[in-house]
Design a protein around this nucleic acid. Structure first.
Lengths: 211, 211
DNA sequence: GATACATTGTTGACAGTGGTAACATTGCGA
DNA sequence: TCGCAATGTTACCACTGTCAACAATGTATC
């Protein structure tokens, strides 16, 4: 790779970029970060990368392929975000659910376009994505947490995949509602996120008689 | 309105359609029903309505305006679907939650493109939509159900809007997951929908000591 | 080192899209 | 009846994704 050469410099630039594939992905991620309002054109990516509009086709068969690539990176980052939110020494296992849930929602609201991308994926391509190991790893975080909770006797004895689905659905749903700006107080009250997580915890935890 | 004239008949057709606005909406709804894979072009609507590609602009300022109109119809239909699913004489109030939840998810999976439309709404336009009376009416169904449950002592005493948000988020989330085909058994188990609703009910209901 | 080939760029085209402007036709009220 | 507002049509614009043809470069082989 030719160091010390700004690839976006239109002047004296080598004919071959050298690392265009990575440059395209990073440029696209930048655009996803900026453009909240979800207009994402391949030509704009090429423009920002300082390259002709057809150049990306040498690295991705079509636009959807690039989007899938970006989405997979999103799953990696989401998994990292959840892992980083897991408390060191959780007092009660249930206390683990709240910070992880908040981290999930925060990831969505911090990266709205990327998060939406991870669940868009036209024509059933989403299925393949979500069965990929990198996406399953996110789900495994939830499965693991609930499984340990069942073993510890704090979480209801139910099929753990069903419980994980409930948690996933609720957090996914409220993340999207938050991204779309739909959690307005006059409709959902003053603390919708906390309330939703509280109800989720109540649905998962074995009720304590004294509380 | 000129009766007995098929407006899609290319031959002897009057210059003026007579009821193009309604025709456009119905054609668009048809397209939403057919096209699962979410390509919805204004020109295709015009084509199917047998009219030039610029004609719709005499009735809608732009494409987004038509989409909003369609989404509002979606909210009406969703409210009707939920109302129709409410049992006549519910034994326990909690038993009301399950059929209504199932009806909600069924509406989404039966009308995937329309349901997605109701939550797409580019650039914050969704907020206005969801604060419209026709959309709030859907939420009111949930609020009313939970409020009665609290009064009857079967549902936890918590801010009802927060509980409704939890229910909305979970059902909305699992509806989208179902629409996207993401509820594959190897990931979420064999009965993800029932499991999710069960966890929701547990989170809303006051736990019974004997169960 | 010269040469052939695969890689990776560029340009230019195509069809299709949302949207606007200019124009044509019609309905309807003064 | 006349004139205007409403509602159609056509022609155009900029833009998109995608492809084919061509140009420049890196690289393996003799």
């Amino acid at each position: 790779m030719r160091n010390f050469i700004a690839m976006t410099d239109v002047q004296n630039r080598p004919y071959h970029h050298g690392d265009l594939r990575r440059a395209i992905i990073e440029t696209a991620l930048d655009m996803l970060r900026d453009d909240k309002n979800w207009q994402f054109t391949l030509r704009e990516v090429a423009r920002r990368a300082g390259v002709s509009h057809a150049a990306p086709y040498k690295h991705f068969p079509d636009k959807a392929a690039l989007l899938v690539e970006l989405a997979m990176i999103g799953f990696d980052r989401l998994r990292e975000a959840l892992a980083g939110a897991k408390p060191e020494a959780p007092q009660s296992l249930l206390e683990e659910i709240t910070p992880i849930s908040l981290a999930y929602v925060a990831f969505g609201t911090d990266n709205p376009a990327l998060y939406r991308l991870m669940f868009s994926a036209e024509e059933g391509r989403a299925v393949g994505m979500h069965l990929d190991q990198r996406a399953l790893a996110v789900f495994d975080v939830v499965l693991d947490m609930l499984g340990r909770g069942q073993a510890a006797g704090t979480i209801r004895k139910r099929p753990v995949r069903g419980q994980a689905t409930a948690a996933w659905a609720l957090i996914h749903g409220i993340t999207l509602l938050a991204i779309d700006g739909l959690l307005v107080p006059e409709k959902v009250g003053s603390a919708p996120l906390d309330a939703a997580i509280a109800t989720l915890v109540d649905g998962l935890a074995i009720p304590q008689p004294n509380t």
